[in-house]
């Protein structure tokens, strides 16, 4: 499978009424890649997508498509199609005509259009829905029509803006698998927007974590999860305990009034840092067997594990464990050095 660079964003900045929404987004996306933009609400995901689609022009910076500058090309001339955040199906057309909309503009023959529409409906599991009014469909069905309408154009790139946002959990999971399957079988490059980290991790080849209009980290789902570059990413990708700490010297960090061994080096001496510990990496022990002691404040059953809040002298830790401890009990908390992640303090992470 050839993997050359298809779309490139170069230092994209975007201002709305003097407010800077994107602050220098640079990103390159390879052919056939499944890229997800992930970040909290308002971080600029939709704006980035709209700039790629051509619905918004960047205040500065370039969008390149196979090396050609795309900035001044109107949306209708781009080999890019979009599945909109709230579907945007044409209410005056039935399901088949919605899907045929772009094909008719290409002046294809009636026979060919019908064939393509039927194939698409089958692909998204809506056989027999041709003549239904789109307003009479359920959210999930409308979603499928929106996907079919974009896919039938056989675009080079498909932009999807939180396409599953309005669906219930079960349907979401099914559609995630289906979308991934469609992406793999068609070989279309997907640029997918979500603020659901689990969705991003399960579907993508590459995850782009954004916050406040700045890219925090680009990497594979495993990289992002195992090696977050800062406290923001660590917190956004799965829950984390984030503490203020001081790097005393290489491989020794001080937080919660104690010194802990760790594996990180190169931060200098007496440097303030963020310390990140994942809830599942904390082991509960007898109080005497650990450096930290705390009292169980609450416990919630989460299906696979229990989630406990444990208050120590300086900080309340979130701990995931398959064993329950009763509320009010004093326990010890221990972490092996490998699981203590040290990160530079960054502005954007605040």
């Amino acid at each position: 499978m050839e993997k050359k660079c298809l779309i490139e964003l170069k230092c994209i900045e975007k201002e709305f009424d003097g407010e800077q929404v994107l602050k220098g987004i640079s990103l390159s996306i390879r052919n056939r890649e499944f890229v997800t933009l992930l970040g909290p609400s308002g971080c600029g995901k939709t704006t980035t997508l709209r700039i790629i689609g051509g619905f918004e022009s960047p205040t500065s910076g370039d969008v390149l498509f196979e090396g050609r500058r795309l900035n001044d090309i109107p949306p209708y001339k781009r080999e890019i199609n979009t599945v909109f955040q709230r579907y945007a199906l044409f209410p005056h057309l039935d399901v088949a005509e919605n899907i045929a909309f772009g094909l008719r503009l290409r002046k294809l023959g009636e026979q060919e259009i019908q064939t393509k529409v039927r194939t698409m409906l089958e692909l998204v599991g809506l056989r027999g829905f041709e003549r239904r009014k789109v307003t009479s469909l359920s959210g999930g069905q409308q979603q499928r029509v929106a996907i079919a309408r974009a896919l039938v154009m056989q675009p080079r790139v498909l932009l999807l803006d939180e396409p599953l946002g309005a669906l219930d959990l079960k349907l979401r999971k099914d559609m995630q698998l289906e979308l991934k399957k469609i992406q793999q079988s068609t070989g279309i490059t997907f640029i997918y927007v979500t603020h659901d980290q689990e969705e991003a991790l399960t579907m993508s080849d590459t995850v782009v974590v954004m916050n406040h209009g700045i890219i925090q980290q680009i990497g594979s789902p495993t990289d992002i999860y195992n090696e977050p570059v800062n406290a923001f990413v660590a917190d956004f990708i799965g829950e984390s305990n984030i503490l203020d700490g001081v790097m005393v010297r290489d491989e020794l960090v001080r937080f919660c009034g104690r010194s802990f061994e760790c594996v990180d080096k190169g931060f200098g001496e007496q440097t303030p840092v963020d310390v990140v510990i994942r809830p599942e990496d904390i082991k509960l022990t007898f109080p005497g067997d650990a450096l930290l002691q705390g009292v169980v404040e609450s416990i919630v059953f989460k299906g696979v594990h229990y989630e406990m809040m444990i208050r120590t002298e300086h900080f309340t830790f979130m701990v995931h464990s398959t064993l329950a401890e009763p509320v009010g009990k004093t326990v010890g908390l221990s972490v092996v050095p490998f699981h203590i992640h040290i990160m530079h303090k960054t502005e954007a992470a605040q």
Binding site: G54, P75, K77, N81, G102, R106, A150, M153
Partner: peptide
């Protein structure tokens, strides 16, 4: 959004008006 959807599917402004 409907106007953008039409543009997205390849409609220049004339077609957007006529078809949407």
């Amino acid at each position: 959004k409907l106007i953008e959807a039409a543009q997205d599917l390849g409609a220049p402004s004339g077609a957007v008006f006529r078809k949407v």
